[in-house]
Design a protein around this nucleic acid. Structure first.
Lengths: 80, 80
DNA sequence: CGAAATTTGTTCGTATGTATC
DNA sequence: TGATACATACGAACAAATTTC
């Protein structure tokens, strides 16, 4: 894992979310595409599911993604 | 249910897995035989499917069983 | 052959307990 | 005290693979 553990300036969920946000804004994850699932984030970053959920929740609070129960977190269409 | 609930020293999925492991090692469930399905574990121990899945996954991590999609969890042939 | 049933795979929603900072 | 983070455990819904009828 590359993210800095608990106690760092930024919480782990923010570090991961910032990465995804950068990828979204760079177009690497285009609108309509699905973000890594909670389970995928758990596996990729070796974090708990709670932290993975927070990543999605935080990005949703920014209006960048929409989380759909049973389906996943999708990048929303950007405002022109 | 006979297993001890959440908060106990051993998690529920471990308690159930340990029972099955003992049965496997005792030869009660011979190699090639199928373990109780997730649904069967749910019914027998009154646990959630997630916990039942964990039982299979844990035994698989021990190399005792192989889980095959659509088929079930099977006891592997033992090393001589 | 095809439909139904069975079984595992995946996804998110929610709650609880513990530990740490 | 509160936020963070871990692990466990419940549930719901749908998908995919396989078996059974």
């Amino acid at each position: 894992m590359t993210v800095v553990q608990h106690g760092a300036r930024l919480p782990v969920y923010r570090q991961i979310a910032d990465r995804l946000r950068a990828a979204i804004e760079a177009g690497a994850i285009p609108p309509g595409d699905r973000l890594p699932s909670e389970a995928a984030l758990v596996a990729e970053y070796d974090v708990s599911r709670g932290t993975a959920r927070r990543v999605h929740r935080y990005l949703a609070s920014l209006g960048l993604v929409e989380v759909e129960p049973g389906r996943g977190a999708y990048v929303v269409e950007r405002q022109p």
